[in-house]
Design a protein around this nucleic acid. Structure first.
Lengths: 317, 317
DNA sequence: CGAAGTTGATTAATCGTTAAATCAAGTGGG
DNA sequence: CCCACTTGATTTAACGATTAATCAACTTCG
């Protein structure tokens, strides 16, 4: 490996001068800078980030902790984060917080031990990660607004509910996956708050809820609003089994606009998060915190977008 | 931050002794080791991995490069790799090789610059990553057997084809996503080689292929074998639109056993990769290479498993 | 009892880079 | 012509660990 010292002795100058020339920091003459730069180029010099990090205390690496990569939305977030980080010359070290909240904190510690400058966390449902060794940005939970970047889940719920309400439904079922998830709670309360007074709605949860949906439709519900596309797909199976046609007999909506939403039959009405914007803002806010600055967008949620497809229509009378 | 030196002066011993006591390397008395260990514990000492890495030349970090996280199988691989790595005390730095093969090589370089000890690569379709600075393990492409860990895609194709053939189909359509992908080619050639002589089969590709499937069924095909679950879902939409019932009129199979396979309607017959085993072996082989050893399993593929669900049945006659 | 070996610790160098302090030489001004 | 200032480079120390070499103090044994 070719080091700064090699270049130095090579040109006959001190290591400090080489460092200064390459980083443009100290005082080096134009001419010397040029000579050093070109020699570095020739030798194929690549700075040793470990040594640099040891000295400066900054690794240029962010830790990313996700609860469960099987949720298809998270990989998209991870990818966008990775792109946003790379654009700023930062790397991303991943940690998996499967299992308990304790495990989550363990992973955070491990990442800090590895020298990350900051942490990006999509928290386990219902947990609030703590770490004071380095700055920390939380993604996608609206609960803690200090350092959180999140889609406006409640707003998204409202969009869906207004759509359903606008096209004439008056008796709807809301289905959530897990009441522990604050995200899902936000989505549901958004739905509820946006529905006009005259609409009858009730909330079901989890596997039991999925099993009960057909019953509710039989009892008069004309629309099923779920908190995830995957849940919607499962409901669709149940409805098909029970011989209820979507959207003719019952309208169905998802959440998150995953790839399957445009590919299932019928295609699914849902709301989309602007994942790219979330990732970008998360990195922006975190790097600002690392620099010790406050970021103006901290705590503001990002709007969601209604995507109307073929799984919703007027209720038949 | 509490360093080794702090502990040293604290106890009144040299830094080297502390290092030896903590790592268990040099010669330190039982008693002194105990004292040092407990003091380190008290102070909450955490070794600085950067400093250690600088000296030893090993960071304990592996680079992971994936082509496209939107493919839902990759996140599962990433997660399993992350778990397998963590179990061995290793970290994973991610890089996204979206775009060209050039980009892929850029990412590899960046990771090496950051000091990774080795690289795990799921290559872009049709590319073969090169990097001689550090050991490199390739995942899921059978093309280059030296340092490759892969499911037995051809074997998986054979499993599916044999199943279809066993239950009586004699006229099948094979549908691939992209002929550039060697994985998909392997799957398809596996299907073809396992089908009995008397079976008529033809291969379609991509969007045009999806559009043509219904036509082929109308012309007498009774089964559609695809190279991915997502593709199968799209085909299912087309078939439904064309009023062909699955599996009554036509059987349909996917590949990879993604979560949607068990949740769509009808549930999808497919083949599963043992992702955990692949991840584990990949890490195992890579760490062996890093230690400079050869691993006995290098180049052997891992068997796939047939998962029969409701999308396949006897052809109606 | 002296040579050789063992034990438990210390010293000093090093990994590659950065940064503050220092220094030599040239420049300009009064 | 001398003092103050600027420029361009060097020295030196440090970041936090590891490791080879060294050393003092005991053991052991012929």
């Amino acid at each position: 490996m070719v080091s700064i010292k090699k270049i130095a002795t090579d040109i006959g100058v001190s290591a400090a001068t080489v460092s200064n020339a390459l980083t443009g920091k100290g005082r080096v003459s134009e001419e010397m800078t040029a000579r050093i730069r070109s020699r570095a180029q020739e030798l194929g010099y690549r700075p040793n980030n470990l040594a640099r990090a040891l000295k400066t205390g900054q690794t240029g690496i962010l830790g990313l902790v996700m609860p469960d990569l099987t949720n298809p939305l998270f990989p998209r977030i991870a990818q966008m984060l990775s792109i946003a980080a790379e654009r700023r010359g930062l790397g991303i070290l991943i940690g998996d917080s499967r299992g308990s909240a304790d495990e989550q904190n363990e992973v955070l510690k491990r990442l800090v031990d590895r020298g990350v400058d900051g942490l990006l966390v999509v928290p386990q449902k219902g947990t609030s990660p703590e770490m004071n060794a380095v700055p920390l940005a939380i993604i996608n939970t609206a609960s803690d607004p200090r350092n959180t970047v999140s889609a406006d889940h409640a707003g998204g719920g409202a969009l869906i509910a207004r759509h359903i309400s606008d096209i004439g439904h008056r008796n709807v079922v809301i289905l959530g996956g897990d009441p522990v998830s604050e995200v899902q709670q936000d989505r549901i309360s958004g739905m509820q708050s946006a529905m006009r007074q005259e609409i009858r709605s009730s909330v079901l949860w989890g596997d039991a809820g999925v099993a009960e949906v057909a019953e509710r439709v039989r009892a008069g519900a004309t629309a099923v609003l779920t908190t995830s596309d995957l849940l919607a797909l499962r409901v669709h199976s149940e409805l098909t089994r029970a011989q209820f046609s979507v959207p003719r007999r019952v309208s169905l909506t998802g959440f998150d606009n995953m790839s399957l939403a445009s590919v299932m039959h019928p295609t699914l009405t849902t709301v989309a998060q602007d994942v790219e914007a979330i990732a970008d803002r998360a990195i922006e806010i975190l790097t600002a915190m690392i620099r010790g600055q406050a970021h103006p967008d901290t705590g503001r949620t990002l709007p969601m977008r209604l995507v109307v497809r073929n799984s919703t229509s007027n209720p038949e009378i």
